[in-house]
Amino acid sequence: MLSDADADYVVVDMDSMYGPMSWLRLHGAGKTVIGLTSASRVQTEYRLGKPFGAGELKALLQQLDSGAPEPRTSAPLAAPANTPEPETPPPTPIEAPAAVTSEPVPMAVAPAAVAAPEPDTVPSEAAQAPQPAPPAPAAPVERRLGDWLAPGALKGKRRFQRDSLVLLIDAERRQYHGPALLKPLDAAFQGPLDEADFVALDAAEWDRQAATLGVPQPLGRLVWFGALLADRGRLAAGYDPGARYQLLKWPQTEREFPKHFRIATAMMKGPATLPEIADASGVTPEEATDFVNANLATGFAEPFREPEPEADPPKSGGLFGRLRGR
């Protein structure tokens, strides 16, 4: 166990209110993040399902050793079936991590590999048993435009083009040049992309093309729009559909989405569930959920947590305190 600055792999509780923000920070710092979650899918490179035991932890360590990330839509990790266990020597015990608390502190795991038993220690019965088929190679993780906009996903100045649409993305300054309206960008957020779709530009070519596309805009605007479209009316993975959500500050609302002003007004009145937000703002539950997703991704919203009860004040002592007690 190391600090998150020194570890190769970091476990983040994605079900906590600070989990997604911790993932963005660590991902931007180049760390490999393992998402600890009860959800069936997660945006981190690897996933550790809740609850987990030694078998799930062993399977995760084997996956880390192979270097093959888990697809985001895959089922929780499980140890391969029918794998013969060696009788001697006994495997080195793997301690389960301490219980995850609500504190926003990611767990850091030092790199480890699962050692195979020496050939001369395998029992003869196991050696004669049929060996299981090797596991199928993991499917590549599908990344869309919204995933490539996360901090650290791209480096330098890049051009993304799809048909007549052109976006110039400055990953270091977190800015972009492109159309003033967001709705025409809907098609750009559909379908998988790889790094080859983002062409690196030198300074001269960047300046020439940027001059035709107008002033730079904050990249967070595209992150917001990508999260608005990502789940199509379903709450983003890692969040509780029954929880109450609140806005931390007034978000930047777009004129293209006039209903968002009503949703933001309703949320600023206090924490509320998704159905309560939809009823208070007069929109559909899907519209309210998409708005909450967009503001969770940009840090304007968060799940509400009940404050800890205040401790009772200490009772006063002395003569006057005893007289008041009577």
Score class of each variant (00 low, 15 high):
Glu95Thr: 15
Leu228Gln: 10
Ala78Gly: 10
Asp6Pro: 06
Asp4Thr: 00
Leu323Gln: 06
Asp6Asn: 07
Lys50Arg: 15
Glu256Asp: 10
Arg324Lys: 08
Leu222Gly: 04
Glu70Thr: 10
Lys155Thr: 15
Gly28Phe: 03
Thr284Arg: 05
Met267Ala: 08
Gly178Trp: 02
Ala116His: 05
Ala129Arg: 07
Phe52Ile: 12
Gly317Glu: 06
Tyr46Pro: 15
Glu142Ala: 14
Glu45Ser: 13
Ala54Val: 14
Ser66Asp: 15
Ser316Ile: 14
Ile277Asp: 12
Ala39Glu: 12
Thr73Met: 12
Lys157Val: 08
Glu302Gln: 12
Pro132Lys: 01
Ala294Cys: 04
Arg173Gln: 14
Ala294Tyr: 01
Ser22Asp: 07
Met14Tyr: 09
Thr101Gly: 13
Thr73Leu: 14
Pro309Asn: 13
Phe225Ile: 01
Leu219Ala: 06
Thr73Cys: 10
Arg47Asp: 13
Ser102Asp: 13
Leu145Val: 03
Pro91Met: 10
Lys249His: 10
Ala204Ser: 12
Lys259Val: 05
Ala81Leu: 01
Ala297Gln: 04
Asp147Glu: 12
Asp4Gln: 02
Pro69Val: 01
Arg208Ala: 08
Arg208Lys: 07
Ser124Phe: 11
Asn295Trp: 13
Val12Trp: 11
Val283His: 06
Glu142Gly: 08
Leu201Pro: 15
Arg47Leu: 09
Leu48Ile: 12
Val12Ser: 07
Ala138Lys: 09
Pro134Asp: 08
Thr212Cys: 00
Gly19Met: 08
Gly156Ser: 04
His260Asp: 15
Pro258Trp: 03
Gly55His: 09
Ala243Arg: 04
Tyr245Met: 06
Leu219Glu: 05
Asp279Tyr: 01
Pro130His: 14
Ala203Thr: 10
Pro130Glu: 15
Arg244Tyr: 01
Ala311Asp: 15
Leu274Val: 03
Gly321Trp: 02
Gln43Arg: 07
Ala236Leu: 06
Gly233Thr: 06
Asp4Cys: 04
Ala98Cys: 02
Gly152Glu: 04
Leu57Gln: 10
Leu182Gln: 08
Ala188Pro: 02
Pro137Ala: 13
Thr83Gln: 15
Glu45Phe: 04
Arg326Trp: 14
Leu64Gln: 11
Pro97Gln: 14
Glu254Asn: 12
Glu195Trp: 00
Thr212Arg: 14
Thr83Phe: 15
Leu323Cys: 02
Ala126Gln: 05
Glu172Leu: 13
Glu95Leu: 13
Ala236Cys: 01
